[in-house]
Each structure stands twice: as structure tokens, then as C-alpha cells.
Write a protein that binds this DNA or RNA. Structure first.
Length: 761
DNA sequence: AAGGCGCGTTTTTTT
DNA sequence: AACGCGCCTT
């Protein structure tokens, strides 16, 4: 080993980066500001381990947040080390531990061909459990129940712990949902019976495995001598504990993250992990990366001026020696559609004046639904774009249908897959027959498949006959599967199930599309099988990969020169020369949901920080004065986040925006709006309609009244807004509305179908 | 069992 | 506006 070569290797790094690379032993935490070369440190660290510390790639585990990040890192490492980086265990927490569980799950009672339930599977399972329990599905909404269960699992609270924990119980009772614990238990048992794990189970069960089988844990502790974690700020307790257990012998754990970019608390991510880390590893080496290489001074400074408004943060001083750059531009539009037009025309201008490519632009928004207006405008101007996220390929019905068949061929206990495919295409097996099967399996204490194989005992007549044929068909799939690879099996299944035929006969535009999509899925399977890096070419291996795939992983989308449209969450870890952050309006960003349900303004602000710091050269912020939301046109106020930005870094774009009233919008709004014309010179004012968490404690005898006879003049109480008086009633299509003047919050329009009102007099 | 119609609900972010 | 669910009819 030549020392010169090593110096050569390290010469591209600044001092703290270098520290982060060469101190390979012992616990290390790298706090990396936005754009400070965090991924670079991680890749160099791994390459350095292999090349200069002669560590076997086989004993390195690197955990990333997305599959894409893992792929990129692997490519970069391969460029540096000639040694093949293929043996590094690198991927998302979910994919890495799914892989581990495939070989070890038998210790905890799961077979190795277990299915992975996606969020849709989980929710529909919850729906059926709620129904079976005779509970009200309006009270026990699948989303709410699921997120409660998910939260518990991410905190490593088992269903038994949950039921025995008075805090959880009290919480649920105060929400009028005392049976969530029971539902949690039934849900877990049903998943287990179906040989299925949901996303959270992959982590929960890994923890369980490590806890209950020290010998297994020990095996992996010996193997993985170096553990690295990217995006540490977005890990949850469950993930943290896995890494802690794995690294507890060697203590060679390196985590990289930025507390200012923690945006997944809603999914259980916990900044507390960063603090715990210091406690868990007393001799921790902390390295701070503070020099930003990505953005202009104006952008870095503006971002700093935003993030200091947060109280909860570690001290950090992000700076840059890049040039000052242009001011951030604020674009105001009259409507969401006009916002789209302005963004599109600005992109056009920038391209003309500065020789940019389409791929130098990104449009970031808070919610997926905002992409529509943007797409339309870009299409009109003939600017190529791609939407990342939203409805992904693998969420399409026809794709899930075929995958359902494949899943069931692999695992006959997969209840959700069975429900999806048993009568598809229609073969005369209705819901009542399916229910009979499930009840029978439950009563007999056997698997669904055993009932299906002996169906003549349970369902007779035409349906029974149809089921018999179905079973024969599935058996033929299994025989093919055992002697063929994933592609041949999938093709045979697509043909013999009748799915392909049904789609082929549908000559509508959508039908044609669907047919092509299925063909595309088959192509993807072919690609999977043909890929020389695929060791395991079975159907099961393909399904596992697919179930953990995200839309950001779609390779087809990386080729073209196109403007990128995506949510800010999806933009994490990416950078673009020009960035538009659109929809900078109160209630949209920061999201109304976030504020009223979780009261976490700071997480929203960190999200804004992430958005700003994606930009390398030029940042544009835009808002619309009117926007279609929930199918209605609504007037909006500019986001409070705009006034967080120090105005020295900001300029209002020359009065772009037509300021013509929209059809159907009363002119009165624009009178008020003209106040904002001078924004941001005007002092920021306290937002008026912001519902604080401490808003109102409903009276102890609060009981919602029947609002069908609500009249003008009634005095009412609302559990959140307090007392008020009905000043107007309105009918809008199917909805009855009441305009109520609340003592604390002023006028509000309530949809009576949603409003919980107590009529006081 | 299957398909149609009308009503009611829902819109935050994702592995 | 878009979707899903339940009920009703065939």
C-alpha cells in the first residue's frame, strides 16, 4: 500500500470530510448540513474501508433511505474500488432486513416465502376485521386504525403491550375508540396466519428475532463489522434499535444525518435518536460538516434565516464560499392555474437566457394533487416533464391484479391476494362464497388453502364447481413455478388466468393502456431474470424486490431531459440548478392537517428548509391567491414561511400575474388581496385563522346535536372553535353549510355533514 | 352474481 | 372532483 495513493484518494475532501472518512473505528456521528457532501463522505468511507483498511465488502452493511440512494452509492463505490461492491449489504432498512428475514424467519414462526403486505393490503385487511367485529367503520376508519398500529410497531409496542398499557388505552378511550388494541391483536394474528408481514413488521420482527434468538444476532454481529446509516435523522426507534443491536459488539457504527432535515416524524422518525446516540455511545466521535458546496450564498443564507426560527435544533453554522448568486424570486399568481402558467413561462425564459436543460429544473410542492395545474401548463408550453411519485406503476389495478396471482402462487395463505384474484376475471365466485371460506378456515383452524382444496365440504353448487377449477388452476401455476424462472411463470399465469385475454378484449383507450402496462410488467420480470446480477431468479425473489420498490426507482424516468415534478418529501437528497417551490400558502404549506392534528409547525418548517436547500443557483417561490381545493375555489393567504425569510435575500418578481378576477370569484377578495401586493416589504402579521392547539376545551357535557334543524341565530358550541353564533345558512350542491361567527376565531364556514356542533340555545 | 346508481366521504407527506 | 361503498335491480 502506497501512502501517496491514499493521499491522492483523500485529496478531494475537506478537513472534516476527511475526518469522517479515515476514522473508521468506533462510533461516529456525522452531522452534515444541507449540501455539505454527506453522501460523498459515506461513499468515500466505504471505499476507504475496502481499499485501504482491506475490509471484506461482505462484512459491511450500509443502510439508506431509498433504493435509489443505495444504487447510486453502490455505483459510486464501484468506480473507486476495483473490488466488486456487490457483496456489501446496502439498501433501505426494509429491503435489507426483508432479505435477512427470508433466511431467518423460521425462528419466529414465519416461512421464508412470506408475503409483504403493502399499505393497501394492510388497510383492506383492517377494514374486514373492523367489519367482522361489528364495529362502526366510521369510527374505526382504516387509516386511523392503521396509523395507530403502525405507530405502536415503530415504537416496538406489541399488541400485548398495547392492550396492557393504560396510557394507550386511555388515549383510545378518549378518542372514543376503545377497541383499537383488540383490532391490533386480530390484525397481527391475521397477518401471521396469512404468512404476511407489513412494512413495519419487517423491522419489528427483526427486532423480535434479535431479541429472542441471541445466537442468530451473534451470527450477524460477527459478520457485519461495519454498520453505516444514512439519513439518520429519519430513522425511528425500531430501526435505531436494530442498528444498535447489530453494532453492539464491534461498535463500528457510523451515522450521517442532519436534524434540520428531519421530515418523517409522522412516520415515527425520531430526532431523539440523535440525542440517544450520544448517550448510548459515550466515546462517540462527532463530526460536523458545515460548508455547503451546493448553493449560492443567497440561498444558503435564506435557508439559515428560515431554520433559526425553529427552537428544537442542534447548533450548526452552515456557510458557503460559492458566489452570492441571484436573489430568490417571489412569484404571486391569481389562481393555481395561473401559477402553473407563470412557472412554465419562467422556465421557458430561464432556458432561453441561460442555456439550461429541462433537467436543470424542479418544481416542488407539498401535496401530490398540486401536480395537475403544473402538468397542464407545462404541456401547453411543450416543456417535457416527469412526475415522480403519486400513483406509481405498481399501484395500478391491472398490475396489482397480476401481482396478486403471482403472490398467491408463491404463498397460498395470502388472504389479501386471494380476495383480489379469486373472482377475477369473473368466474362466478361471489363475496358470500369468499366469506364462507374465511369463516370455515377460522372455525376449523386451518389455512385458507386447505379449505379451498376441500371446497366440496363447504361450498356446493355452481360456486363450488368454480372454486374447484380455480384451485386446479393455481396448482398448475405452482407446478410451472417450481421448474421455471420468474418470467416463464408470470407469462404462463398471465395467459392462463384469463387476465391478459380480458384486457386484450377491452378496446377502449384505458383498456389498451392497461394491456400495455401488463406487458410492461412482464418485460420488467424478463429484465429481472436476464440481469446477470440477479442471483435468485425465482418468482418469490422478484416479488420481494417489487414490494419494496418505490416510484422514485422507476428506471424509465431517469433517461429523458425533463423538468422534475415532485413532493418536497421525494426531493430529499436531490439537487437541481433551478428550483420552484409552489403553493406557498397558509393551510397548504404549512399543511392545515399537520397543524391541527399534530401541532408540529417545526416539522413543516424543516420541510421548507429542505425545499430551499435543493436549489443550486436559483430559487423561485410562488403562491396563488385562489386555489381549487376539495373541488371548490378557495381564497388563500401567503404562507407564514414567506415571512420567515430574511427579506434581504428576496425580491418580488415584477408584477407578473394578470390580476384579472377569475370567473366566479367575487371582486371583494381582490380588494383585500391588494394588501399583499407590497409583500414582503410589509411587516409579517400574525396569521388569523391559525387554530392553536390550546384553542378550546369543550364543555364536559359536550354532545353533538342534530343539526338538521339548525337555524340562523342559534348559539352553538364546536369542540375546537368554541362558542359562536350562526349568522347565515347556505346550500351548496348536496352540502348544507352554516356560516358561524366564533367568539375566538371569527367567521368560519362549516359543512354540516362534518361539523360537530352542540346547539346551546 | 353482476352491474348500475346515488349517496357520502375525502383530500399530507412514504418505506 | 374523484372515488368508494352500499343498496337496488336484473
Amino acid at each position: 500500500m502506497s501512502l501517496d495513493a491514499e493521499e491522492e484518494f483523500l485529496k478531494e475532501l475537506n478537513e472534516p470530510q476527511r475526518e469522517g472518512v479515515i476514522n473508521t473505528e468506533g462510533p461516529t456521528m456525522i452531522i452534515a448540513g444541507a449540501g455539505s457532501g454527506k453522501t460523498r463522505v459515506l461513499t468515500y468511507r466505504i471505499a476507504y474501508l475496502i481499499k485501504y483498511k482491506h475490509v471484506d465488502p461482505f462484512s459491511i452493511m450500509a443502510l439508506t433511505f431509498t433504493n435509489k440512494a443505495a444504487r447510486e452509492m453502490r455505483n459510486r463505490i464501484e468506480k473507486v474500488v476495483d473490488n466488486d461492491a456487490r457483496n456489501i449489504w446496502m439498501g433501505t432498512f426494509h429491503s435489507v432486513f426483508a432479505r435477512l428475514l427470508r433466511s431467518e424467519a423460521h425462528h419466529i414462526g414465519y416461512p421464508s416465502n412470506f408475503t409483504i403486505y403493502d399499505a393497501d393490503d394492510s388497510k383492506s385487511l383492517i377494514k374486514s376485521i373492523v367489519k367482522e367485529q361489528g364495529l362502526d367503520d366510521k369510527v374505526y376508519k382504516a387509516n386511523a386504525v392503521f396509523s395507530r398500529i403502525s405507530g405502536a410497531k415503530n415504537n416496538l409496542v406489541s399488541w400485548k403491550d398495547y392492550i396492557n398499557n393504560p396510557l394507550y388505552q386511555a388515549d383510545d378511550e378518549s378518542q372514543m375508540r376503545p377497541h383499537i388494541g383488540k383490532l391490533y391483536q386480530l390484525y397481527v394474528q391475521r397477518c401471521f396466519k396469512a404468512d404476511a408481514m407489513d412494512f413495519d413488521d419487517l423491522l419489528f420482527n427483526t427486532n423480535l428475532l434479535f431479541k429472542e434468538h441471541p445466537d442468530v444476532l451473534n451470527k450477524y454481529q460477527q459478520r457485519f463489522q461495519y454498520v453505516l446509516v444514512d439519513e439518520f435523522q429519519d430513522t425511528n426507534i425500531s430501526q435505531y434499535l436494530i442498528t444498535k443491536r447489530l453494532a453492539s459488539v464491534r461498535q463500528n457504527i457510523a451515522v450521517v444525518g442532519d436534524d434540520a432535515q428531519s421530515i418523517y416524524a409522522f412516520r415515527g422518525a425520531n430526532i431523539q435518536n440523535i440525542l440517544n446516540f450520544e448517550k448510548d455511545y459515550p466515546d462517540l466521535r462527532i463530526i460536523k460538516l458545515e460548508q455547503n458546496y451546493r448553493s449560492t450564498q443567497n440561498i444558503v443564507n435564506a435557508a439559515n434565516s428560515v431554520i433559526v426560527k425553529n427552537k428544537a435544533q442542534l447548533h450548526k453554522n452552515v456557510w458557503t464560499s460559492n458566489q452570492e448568486g441571484r436573489l430568490i424570486e417571489l412569484i404571486k399568481a391569481v389562481s393555481d392555474n395561473e401559477e402553473g402558467k407563470l412557472v412554465a413561462s419562467t422556465i421557458f425564459e430561464q432556458k432561453m437566457n441561460h442555456q439550461y436543460h429541462n433537467s436543470d429544473f424542479a418544481v416542488l410542492y407539498r401535496t401530490n394533487s398540486q401536480s395537475r395545474a403544473m402538468e397542464e401548463a407545462l404541456r401547453r408550453m411543450n416543456i417535457k416533464y416527469k412526475v415522480v411519485g403519486g400513483l406509481s406503476f405498481y399501484q395500478r389495478k391491472e398490475i396489482k391484479d397480476l401481482l396478486g396471482y403471482l403472490r398467491f402462487a408463491v404463498n397460498q395463505n395470502d388472504e389479501q391476494a386471494l380476495r383480489r384474484i379469486i373472482n377475477l376475471p369473473k368466474r362466478g365466485i361471489g363475496d358470500s362464497s369468499v366469506d364462507k371460506i374465511i369463516v370455515a378456515a377460522d372455525e376449523q383452524g386451518v389455512s385458507l388453502w386447505e379449505i379451498l382444496e376441500n371446497i366440496h365440504h363447504f361450498v356446493g353448487g355452481r360456486a363450488g364447481e368454480a372454486i374447484k377449477n380455480f384451485v386446479t388452476m393455481i396448482k398448475s401455476f405452482r407446478i410451472t413455478m417450481e421448474k421455471s424462472d420468474a418470467y416463464d411463470t408470470a407469462q404462463m399465469v398471465a395467459k392462463n388466468s384469463g387476465l391478459l385475454k380480458e384486457l386484450y378484449e377491452d378496446k377502449t383507450v384505458e383498456g389498451l393502456n392497461r394491456y400495455e402496462n401488463v406487458q410492461e410488467l412482464l418485460n420488467a420480470i424478463k429484465e429481472f431474470v436476464d440481469n446477470p446480477e440477479t442471483n435468485d431468479k425465482t418468482l418469490g425473489a422478484f416479488l420481494q424486490e417489487v414490494s419494496l420498490l418505490t416510484d422514485a426507482d422507476d428506471k424509465n424516468k431517469e433517461l429523458d431531459d425533463a423538468v422534475t415534478l415532485m413532493t418536497i418529501h421525494m426531493a430529499k437528497g436531490l439537487e437541481f440548478k433551478n428550483v420552484f417551490v409552489v403553493g406557498m400558502e397558509e393551510d397548504l404549506f404549512p399543511s392545515q392537517m399537520m397543524l391541527s392534528s399534530r401541532a408540529d409547525l417545526e416539522e413543516e418548517r424543516r420541510l421548507f428548509y429542505v425545499a430551499i436547500t435543493r436549489a443550486e443557483q436559483h430559487l423561485f417561490l410562488s403562491y396563488a391567491l385562489n386555489r381549487y381545493r376539495y373541488g371548490r375555489l378557495k381564497t388563500c393567504e401567503p404562507s407564514r414561511f414567506l415571512s420567515d425569510i430574511d427579506t434581504t435575500y428576496l425580491q418580488v418578481s415584477k408584477s407578473i400575474g394578470s390580476h384579472e378576477p377569475l370567473p366566479g370569484v367575487q371582486a371583494q377578495h381582490f380588494g383585500k388581496r391588494s394588501l399583499i401586493a407590497g409583500f414582503p416589504e410589509q411587516k409579517p402579521q400574525a396569521p388569523r385563522h391559525f387554530v392553536k392547539q390550546t384553542a378550546h376545551q369543550p364543555s364536559s357535557d359536550f354532545k353533538p346535536s342534530d343539526t338538521s334543524n339548525l337555524i340562523v341565530g342559534n348559539r352553538v358550541e364546536h369542540p375546537k372553535f368554541g362558542f359562536g353564533k350562526v349568522i347565515r345558512m347556505d346550500v351548496d350542491g348536496a352540502n348544507r353549510k352554516a356560516i358561524i361567527d366564533f367568539e375566538q376565531f371569527g367567521e368560519k364556514t362549516l359543512l354540516l355533514s362534518f361539523a360537530k356542533l352542540r346547539i346551546v340555545e
